[in-house]
């Protein structure tokens, strides 16, 4: 089986989707001839033509608004927002339009749009190339939110998202595009092709990873760790370094959430640590914490802990003090294990 990094896997998914359905259309800043600033769409315009893979004016509001119109016609647009940090000009089209059109037209205008966007920090990108705004979207009724953590899932989830008849926000953790990240900034990145991990093996053809299904990355009996994207790997480091028998769940899809897998795990371990890179207050971790408390209260041995980025803009030089690395996670593990 070929080994791919996440960019190659995403490129392969887009290529398969374009070949499979004449309605799949890719648009975004620099995605056409050049193939995207992260090269995710490289070669696709050449193979599938300029009217199916094309560059756009620099207006995120326009990109999503146009995608809504294309979906109304019957296409399956896959717009790219160059960085998640630049998605805010598109909020009205996403929140007031794409998310609600099925509802307000009573099903006349479904919106099969998949918005791809690199997100997350750890690349010294400063406050406008590092944010994790998933909580903005999970709060909106009518949007699905998907975040892969490895090449196999990236391709399978992206193909599932494109096939889905509702709008999906597909955030790609750019820190792990080329290789997994253990959370220590000074460890050199080992490329996906060289890591001993089956998730770097990616079939060439079509397959899907269903939306709404989490993956148990590591089984354990002491504590459940809920994570997604880059933080799945960082949580793995923390568990290994702490010696705690943690059960790590990669959520993969935030909305719709795989509540059954979470419940089964927390009922088994009695402890729960939630890890995300996004700011803390009102983040998706707050939702997870509430759900675990509501549904597993009598099984809990300790208060649920959240490990997150701080409630500050993403700093440039203090990036690694901001990032919720292994030290922060281990302290949370210690805290839940004490009770």
């Amino acid at each position: 089986m070929p080994r791919m990094n996440m960019i190659e896997a995403i490129n392969s998914a887009l290529n398969v989707a374009l070949a499979q359905s004449p309605d799949v259309t890719i648009l975004g800043e620099d995605v056409g001839y050049f193939g995207g600033v992260f090269r995710a769409t490289a070669g696709l315009q050449k193979r599938h033509g300029k009217t199916r893979v094309f560059d756009t004016p620099i207006t995120e509001c326009g990109i999503i608004g146009v995608a809504v119109g294309m979906a109304a016609y019957g296409l399956r647009p896959v717009p790219e927002i160059q960085f998640a940090d630049y998605i805010y000009p598109a909020l009205d089209q996403l929140v007031s339009e794409a998310a609600r059109l099925r509802y307000r037209s009573a099903g006349e205008f479904p919106m099969p749009i998949t918005v791809r966007s690199p997100f997350g920090g750890g690349i010294f990108g400063g406050q406008t190339h590092s944010q994790s705004p998933e909580g903005v979207f999970t709060h909106v009724a009518g949007l699905k939110t998907v975040i892969p953590s490895n090449p196999y899932d990236a391709k399978g989830l992206l193909l599932a998202a494109i096939a889905d008849n509702d709008p999906v926000i597909f955030f790609e953790p750019k820190r792990i595009y080329n290789g997994p990240f253990d959370g220590h900034y000074d460890t050199p990145t080992v490329p996906w092709a060289k890591v001993d991990d089956a998730t770097a093996e990616v079939p060439e053809g079509h397959y899907t990873v269903p939306l709404g299904k989490a993956r148990v990355v590591r089984e354990g009996g002491d504590v459940t760790l809920l994570a997604y994207g880059t933080m799945v790997h960082v949580a793995g480091t923390a568990v290994a370094e702490s010696g705690v028998d943690g059960e790590i769940i990669d959520l993969r899809t935030l909305i719709p959430l795989d509540i059954e897998t979470i419940k089964a795990s927390v009922k088994k371990t009695g402890r729960c640590v939630i890890v995300h890179e996004a700011t803390r207050t009102g983040g998706f971790g707050a939702e997870l914490s509430a759900l675990v408390q509501e549904r597993c209260f009598y099984h809990l041995e300790a208060p649920v802990q959240r490990v997150t980025g701080f409630d500050t803009p993403y700093p440039h030089s203090l990036e690694w003090a901001y990032f919720p690395g292994p030290v922060r996670i281990k302290r949370a593990l210690d805290a839940v294990m004490k009770d």
């Binding site: 500050t312 803009p313 030089s317 203090l318």
Partner: peptide, 16 residues
């Protein structure tokens, strides 16, 4: 720029 963390850590929380 590097990993020397030149600013005192608590400055991260100033000016929010």
């Amino acid at each position: 720029l590097g990993h020397g963390l030149h600013q005192p850590l608590e400055t991260m929380f100033e000016d929010i």
